[in-house]
Protein backbone atom coordinates (compact mmCIF):
# COMPACT_ATOMS: atom_id res chain seq x y z
CA UNK A 1 0.00 0.00 0.00
CA UNK A 2 2.87 2.30 0.82
CA UNK A 3 4.32 1.70 -2.62
CA UNK A 4 1.12 2.69 -4.40
CA UNK A 5 0.97 5.77 -2.22
CA UNK A 6 4.36 6.95 -3.28
CA UNK A 7 3.90 6.09 -6.94
CA UNK A 8 0.72 8.02 -7.03
CA UNK A 9 2.43 10.93 -5.45
CA UNK A 10 5.20 10.73 -8.01
CA UNK A 11 2.61 10.51 -10.72
CA UNK A 12 1.02 13.61 -9.44
CA UNK A 13 4.26 15.49 -9.28
CA UNK A 14 5.11 14.40 -12.78
CA UNK A 15 1.74 15.58 -13.88
CA UNK A 16 2.34 18.91 -12.21
CA UNK A 17 5.64 19.19 -13.98
CA UNK A 18 4.26 18.39 -17.41
CA UNK A 19 1.35 20.71 -16.90
CA UNK A 20 3.65 23.71 -16.94
CA UNK A 21 2.39 26.65 -18.79
CA UNK A 22 3.75 27.67 -22.13
CA UNK A 23 5.26 30.76 -20.60
CA UNK A 24 7.16 28.77 -18.11
CA UNK A 25 8.58 26.43 -20.69
CA UNK A 26 9.62 29.43 -22.73
CA UNK A 27 11.26 30.91 -19.67
CA UNK A 28 13.22 27.78 -18.85
CA UNK A 29 14.77 27.53 -22.27
CA UNK A 30 16.74 30.68 -21.87
CA UNK A 31 18.66 31.40 -18.72
CA UNK A 32 16.03 31.92 -16.07
CA UNK A 33 16.32 35.28 -14.34
CA UNK A 34 16.40 35.09 -10.57
CA UNK A 35 13.11 35.22 -8.75
CA UNK A 36 12.54 38.71 -7.44
CA UNK A 37 8.93 39.17 -6.51
CA UNK A 38 6.00 36.97 -5.59
CA UNK A 39 2.78 38.55 -6.74
CA UNK A 40 -0.19 37.28 -4.82
CA UNK A 41 -3.85 37.87 -5.56
CA UNK A 42 -6.15 39.02 -2.81
CA UNK A 43 -8.18 35.86 -3.35
CA UNK A 44 -5.20 33.74 -2.39
CA UNK A 45 -4.65 35.81 0.75
CA UNK A 46 -8.19 35.22 1.84
CA UNK A 47 -8.13 31.54 1.00
CA UNK A 48 -4.90 30.90 2.86
CA UNK A 49 -5.99 32.90 5.87
CA UNK A 50 -9.37 31.22 6.02
CA UNK A 51 -7.92 27.74 5.78
CA UNK A 52 -5.21 28.37 8.34
CA UNK A 53 -7.54 30.13 10.74
CA UNK A 54 -10.29 27.53 10.51
CA UNK A 55 -7.91 24.80 11.57
CA UNK A 56 -5.77 26.77 13.99
CA UNK A 57 -4.00 25.76 16.23
CA UNK A 58 -3.31 22.60 14.22
CA UNK A 59 -1.03 23.26 11.29
CA UNK A 60 -2.28 22.90 7.73
CA UNK A 61 -0.88 23.06 4.23
CA UNK A 62 -2.15 23.66 0.74
CA UNK A 63 -1.04 24.04 -2.82
CA UNK A 64 -0.34 27.27 -4.68
CA UNK A 65 -1.29 27.61 -8.31
CA UNK A 66 -0.16 30.29 -10.69
CA UNK A 67 2.23 31.38 -13.39
CA UNK A 68 5.93 31.88 -13.60
CA UNK A 69 6.58 35.02 -15.61
CA UNK A 70 10.21 36.04 -15.81
CA UNK A 71 11.39 37.18 -12.44
CA UNK A 72 7.87 37.37 -11.05
CA UNK A 73 5.99 34.41 -9.68
CA UNK A 74 2.27 35.08 -9.89
CA UNK A 75 0.15 33.22 -7.38
CA UNK A 76 -3.35 33.33 -8.76
CA UNK A 77 -5.10 30.57 -6.86
CA UNK A 78 -4.62 27.90 -4.27
CA UNK A 79 -6.40 25.00 -2.69
CA UNK A 80 -6.14 23.45 0.75
CA UNK A 81 -4.98 19.93 1.52
CA UNK A 82 -7.04 17.83 3.89
CA UNK A 83 -5.53 17.27 7.31
CA UNK A 84 -2.61 14.94 7.05
CA UNK A 85 -2.98 11.57 8.65
CA UNK A 86 -0.56 8.82 9.37
CA UNK A 87 -2.57 6.17 7.62
CA UNK A 88 -1.06 5.20 4.28
CA UNK A 89 -4.37 4.52 2.65
CA UNK A 90 -5.39 8.05 3.37
CA UNK A 91 -2.12 9.32 1.97
CA UNK A 92 -2.91 7.72 -1.36
CA UNK A 93 -6.30 9.27 -1.03
CA UNK A 94 -4.62 12.63 -0.61
CA UNK A 95 -2.76 12.30 -3.90
CA UNK A 96 -6.06 11.46 -5.59
CA UNK A 97 -7.57 14.47 -3.98
CA UNK A 98 -4.87 16.70 -5.43
CA UNK A 99 -5.35 15.32 -8.91
CA UNK A 100 -9.08 15.68 -8.67
CA UNK A 101 -8.87 19.22 -7.38
CA UNK A 102 -6.44 20.26 -10.11
CA UNK A 103 -8.68 18.73 -12.75
CA UNK A 104 -11.74 20.47 -11.40
CA UNK A 105 -10.04 23.82 -11.14
CA UNK A 106 -8.74 23.55 -14.67
CA UNK A 107 -12.26 23.06 -15.88
CA UNK A 108 -13.19 26.51 -14.61
CA UNK A 109 -10.08 28.01 -16.20
CA UNK A 110 -7.98 28.41 -13.10
CA UNK A 111 -4.22 28.44 -13.73
CA UNK A 112 -3.42 24.81 -13.33
CA UNK A 113 0.24 25.00 -12.60
CA UNK A 114 1.85 24.16 -9.29
CA UNK A 115 4.29 26.76 -8.09
CA UNK A 116 4.68 25.84 -4.47
CA UNK A 117 2.73 25.43 -1.31
CA UNK A 118 1.57 27.32 1.73
CA UNK A 119 1.53 26.32 5.34
CA UNK A 120 0.50 27.74 8.65
CA UNK A 121 2.89 28.05 11.54
CA UNK A 122 2.79 28.73 15.23
CA UNK A 123 4.82 31.83 16.12
CA UNK A 124 7.22 31.20 13.28
CA UNK A 125 8.36 27.75 14.32
CA UNK A 126 8.57 26.50 10.77
CA UNK A 127 12.28 26.07 10.17
CA UNK A 128 12.54 22.32 10.30
CA UNK A 129 14.24 19.58 8.37
CA UNK A 130 10.82 18.50 7.03
CA UNK A 131 10.30 21.88 5.43
CA UNK A 132 13.63 21.60 3.68
CA UNK A 133 12.81 18.10 2.51
CA UNK A 134 9.49 19.23 1.09
CA UNK A 135 11.27 22.08 -0.59
CA UNK A 136 13.77 19.77 -2.21
CA UNK A 137 10.94 17.51 -3.37
CA UNK A 138 9.13 20.37 -5.02
CA UNK A 139 12.28 21.90 -6.41
CA UNK A 140 13.13 18.74 -8.27
CA UNK A 141 9.94 19.00 -10.28
CA UNK A 142 9.34 22.69 -10.49
CA UNK A 143 12.22 24.99 -11.18
CA UNK A 144 10.82 27.84 -9.24
CA UNK A 145 8.87 27.18 -6.20
CA UNK A 146 7.99 29.21 -3.22
CA UNK A 147 6.57 28.52 0.19
CA UNK A 148 4.18 30.93 1.78
CA UNK A 149 4.11 30.88 5.54
CA UNK A 150 1.19 32.32 7.44
CA UNK A 151 1.06 32.77 11.16
CA UNK A 152 -2.53 32.89 12.45
CA UNK A 153 -1.41 33.53 16.04
CA UNK A 154 0.12 36.86 15.09
CA UNK A 155 -2.83 38.06 13.08
CA UNK A 156 -4.69 38.66 16.33
CA UNK A 157 -2.27 41.53 16.74
CA UNK A 158 -3.41 43.16 13.55
CA UNK A 159 -0.33 42.01 11.69
CA UNK A 160 -0.55 40.35 8.31
CA UNK A 161 2.05 37.72 9.10
CA UNK A 162 2.59 36.35 5.64
CA UNK A 163 5.99 35.49 4.26
CA UNK A 164 7.24 34.03 0.99
CA UNK A 165 10.34 31.90 1.31
CA UNK A 166 12.65 29.86 -0.83
CA UNK A 167 15.85 28.00 -0.20
CA UNK A 168 19.02 29.70 -1.37
CA UNK A 169 20.82 28.07 -4.28
CA UNK A 170 24.08 27.55 -2.44
CA UNK A 171 22.27 25.86 0.39
CA UNK A 172 20.44 23.54 -1.98
CA UNK A 173 23.68 22.51 -3.59
CA UNK A 174 25.16 21.69 -0.25
CA UNK A 175 22.04 19.86 0.85
CA UNK A 176 22.09 17.65 -2.22
CA UNK A 177 25.63 16.55 -1.46
CA UNK A 178 24.64 16.25 2.20
CA UNK A 179 27.83 17.88 3.37
CA UNK A 180 27.26 19.93 6.44
CA UNK A 181 30.70 19.87 7.94
CA UNK A 182 32.64 22.93 8.97
CA UNK A 183 35.16 22.85 6.17
CA UNK A 184 32.59 22.80 3.39
CA UNK A 185 30.59 25.52 5.02
CA UNK A 186 33.63 27.71 5.27
CA UNK A 187 34.49 26.98 1.67
CA UNK A 188 31.04 28.08 0.53
CA UNK A 189 30.92 30.86 3.05
CA UNK A 190 27.49 29.69 4.08
CA UNK A 191 26.08 30.71 7.42
CA UNK A 192 22.73 30.09 9.03
CA UNK A 193 21.43 33.35 7.64
CA UNK A 194 21.82 32.01 4.11
CA UNK A 195 19.50 29.02 4.32
CA UNK A 196 16.25 30.78 3.53
CA UNK A 197 15.70 33.69 1.24
CA UNK A 198 12.69 35.83 1.82
CA UNK A 199 11.08 37.10 -1.33
CA UNK A 200 9.18 40.38 -1.33
CA UNK A 201 5.44 40.05 -1.77
CA UNK A 202 3.32 42.19 -4.05
CA UNK A 203 -0.45 42.15 -4.03
CA UNK A 204 -2.60 42.32 -7.11
CA UNK A 205 -6.34 42.28 -7.57
CA UNK A 206 -8.48 42.25 -10.65
CA UNK A 207 -10.23 45.49 -11.51
CA UNK A 208 -13.57 43.84 -10.79
CA UNK A 209 -12.60 42.91 -7.26
CA UNK A 210 -11.14 46.33 -6.71
CA UNK A 211 -14.47 47.84 -7.72
CA UNK A 212 -16.44 45.57 -5.41
CA UNK A 213 -14.15 46.16 -2.46
CA UNK A 214 -14.34 49.92 -2.90
CA UNK A 215 -18.09 49.58 -2.85
CA UNK A 216 -18.16 47.30 0.16
CA UNK A 217 -15.66 49.19 2.24
CA UNK A 218 -17.53 50.35 5.32
CA UNK A 219 -17.36 54.07 5.99
CA UNK A 220 -16.61 53.58 9.68
CA UNK A 221 -13.33 55.23 10.54
CA UNK A 222 -12.10 52.34 12.68
CA UNK A 223 -11.48 48.85 11.42
CA UNK A 224 -11.00 45.55 13.22
CA UNK A 225 -7.33 45.88 12.42
CA UNK A 226 -7.04 49.04 14.49
CA UNK A 227 -8.70 47.43 17.48
CA UNK A 228 -6.35 44.49 17.28
CA UNK A 229 -3.29 46.63 16.95
CA UNK A 230 -4.09 48.91 19.86
CA UNK A 231 -4.82 46.01 22.21
CA UNK A 232 -2.68 46.66 25.26
CA UNK A 233 -2.12 43.18 26.59
CA UNK A 234 0.46 41.14 24.76
CA UNK A 235 1.61 39.02 27.65
CA UNK A 236 0.12 35.73 26.46
CA UNK A 237 1.77 36.06 23.08
CA UNK A 238 5.03 37.07 24.69
CA UNK A 239 4.87 34.17 27.11
CA UNK A 240 4.41 31.65 24.37
CA UNK A 241 7.15 33.27 22.37
CA UNK A 242 9.50 33.01 25.32
CA UNK A 243 8.51 29.39 25.89
CA UNK A 244 9.46 28.48 22.36
CA UNK A 245 12.56 30.56 22.66
CA UNK A 246 13.76 28.79 25.77
CA UNK A 247 12.99 25.41 24.25
CA UNK A 248 15.12 26.31 21.27
CA UNK A 249 17.91 27.43 23.52
CA UNK A 250 17.91 24.02 25.17
CA UNK A 251 18.05 22.35 21.80
CA UNK A 252 20.90 24.55 20.75
CA UNK A 253 22.93 23.82 23.84
CA UNK A 254 22.33 20.12 23.21
CA UNK A 255 23.71 20.54 19.70
CA UNK A 256 26.64 22.46 21.08
CA UNK A 257 27.36 19.65 23.47
CA UNK A 258 27.48 17.28 20.54
CA UNK A 259 30.13 19.42 18.94
CA UNK A 260 32.09 19.74 22.12
CA UNK A 261 32.01 16.02 22.52
CA UNK A 262 33.22 15.63 18.96
CA UNK A 263 36.08 18.06 19.45
CA UNK A 264 37.08 16.50 22.72
CA UNK A 265 37.23 13.03 21.25
CA UNK A 266 39.04 14.42 18.23
CA UNK A 267 41.75 15.99 20.31
CA UNK A 268 42.00 12.88 22.45
CA UNK A 269 42.43 10.83 19.32
CA UNK A 270 45.10 13.14 18.03
CA UNK A 271 46.97 12.94 21.30
CA UNK A 272 46.78 9.17 21.08
CA UNK A 273 48.06 9.26 17.52
CA UNK A 274 50.96 11.43 18.56
CA UNK A 275 51.83 9.12 21.41
CA UNK A 276 51.66 6.12 19.14
CA UNK A 277 53.86 7.81 16.54
CA UNK A 278 56.34 8.75 19.20
CA UNK A 279 56.53 5.21 20.40
CA UNK A 280 56.84 3.86 16.88
CA UNK A 281 59.67 6.27 16.08
CA UNK A 282 61.57 5.31 19.21
CA UNK A 283 61.04 1.70 18.28
CA UNK A 284 62.28 2.34 14.75
CA UNK A 285 65.36 4.09 16.12
CA UNK A 286 66.23 1.08 18.19
CA UNK A 287 65.50 -1.21 15.26
CA UNK A 288 67.79 0.89 13.07
CA UNK A 289 70.52 0.61 15.66
CA UNK A 290 70.03 -3.14 15.65
CA UNK A 291 70.18 -3.12 11.81
CA UNK A 292 66.57 -4.16 11.23
CA UNK A 293 64.01 -2.79 8.75
CA UNK A 294 62.01 0.11 10.23
CA UNK A 295 58.26 -0.43 10.75
CA UNK A 296 55.83 1.77 8.78
CA UNK A 297 54.80 4.97 10.52
CA UNK A 298 51.15 4.35 9.94
CA UNK A 299 48.88 1.59 10.95
CA UNK A 300 45.43 1.69 9.36
CA UNK A 301 44.24 -1.29 11.35
CA UNK A 302 44.69 0.55 14.62
CA UNK A 303 41.36 2.00 15.79
CA UNK A 304 42.95 5.28 16.80
CA UNK A 305 43.53 6.10 13.14
CA UNK A 306 39.90 5.73 12.18
CA UNK A 307 38.56 9.17 11.39
CA UNK A 308 35.66 10.32 13.53
CA UNK A 309 32.56 11.44 11.65
CA UNK A 310 31.87 15.12 12.11
CA UNK A 311 28.29 15.81 13.20
CA UNK A 312 26.14 17.63 10.67
CA UNK A 313 25.60 21.31 11.27
CA UNK A 314 22.21 21.41 9.63
CA UNK A 315 20.27 20.97 12.82
CA UNK A 316 22.15 23.66 14.70
CA UNK A 317 21.80 25.99 11.74
CA UNK A 318 18.08 25.53 11.71
CA UNK A 319 17.80 26.05 15.44
CA UNK A 320 19.89 29.17 15.17
CA UNK A 321 17.58 30.43 12.46
CA UNK A 322 14.64 29.65 14.66
CA UNK A 323 16.11 31.52 17.60
CA UNK A 324 16.90 34.53 15.51
CA UNK A 325 13.33 34.46 14.28
CA UNK A 326 12.03 34.48 17.85
CA UNK A 327 14.39 37.32 18.69
CA UNK A 328 12.99 39.23 15.79
CA UNK A 329 9.45 38.60 16.92
CA UNK A 330 10.21 39.58 20.48
CA UNK A 331 11.76 42.76 19.19
CA UNK A 332 8.70 43.47 17.10
CA UNK A 333 6.17 42.79 19.84
CA UNK A 334 8.12 44.69 22.50
CA UNK A 335 8.61 47.58 20.13
CA UNK A 336 4.89 47.75 19.57
CA UNK A 337 4.28 47.34 23.28
CA UNK A 338 6.51 50.33 24.00
CA UNK A 339 4.63 52.40 21.47
CA UNK A 340 1.33 51.46 23.06
CA UNK A 341 2.56 52.30 26.53
CA UNK A 342 3.78 55.73 25.50
CA UNK A 343 0.51 56.27 23.69
CA UNK A 344 -1.37 55.34 26.83
CA UNK A 345 0.76 57.71 28.86
CA UNK A 346 0.17 60.54 26.44
CA UNK A 347 -3.56 59.87 26.43
CA UNK A 348 -3.69 60.05 30.18
CA UNK A 349 -1.69 63.22 30.37
CA UNK A 350 -4.01 64.85 27.88
Amino acid sequence: MAATGTTERCLFLLYAATARSFLQVAATEEVAPPLRVVQIEGLVFLKIIKHCKDHSPSLVTGQLLGLDVGSVLEVTNCFPFPMREEDEEIEADGANYQLEMMRCLREVNVDNNTIGWYQSTLLGSFQTVELIETFMNYQENIRRCVCIIYDPSRSDQGVLALKALKLSDSFMELYRSNNFIGEKLREKNLTWVDIFEEIPIKVSNSALISAFMTELEPDTPVSQCDYDRLQLSTSSLMERNMDFFIECMDDLSLEQQKFQFYYRSLSRQQAQQQAWLHKRRAENMSRKAAGEEPLPEEDPSNPIFKSLPEPSRLESFLITNQISNYCHQINGVSGQGLIRLYLMKALRED
Binding site: G42, F45, L46, I49, S155, G158, L160, V203, N205, I209, S210, M213, T214, E217, S223, Q224, C225, D228
Partner: peptide, 9 residues
Protein backbone atom coordinates in the same frame (compact mmCIF):
# COMPACT_ATOMS: atom_id res chain seq x y z
CA UNK B 1 -10.67 44.28 7.69
CA UNK B 2 -8.08 42.07 9.26
CA UNK B 3 -6.06 42.09 6.06
CA UNK B 4 -6.88 45.69 5.48
CA UNK B 5 -9.10 47.14 2.83
CA UNK B 6 -6.16 49.12 1.51
CA UNK B 7 -4.53 45.87 0.48
CA UNK B 8 -7.65 44.34 -1.03
CA UNK B 9 -9.01 47.43 -2.72
Amino acid sequence: ERIGFDTLK
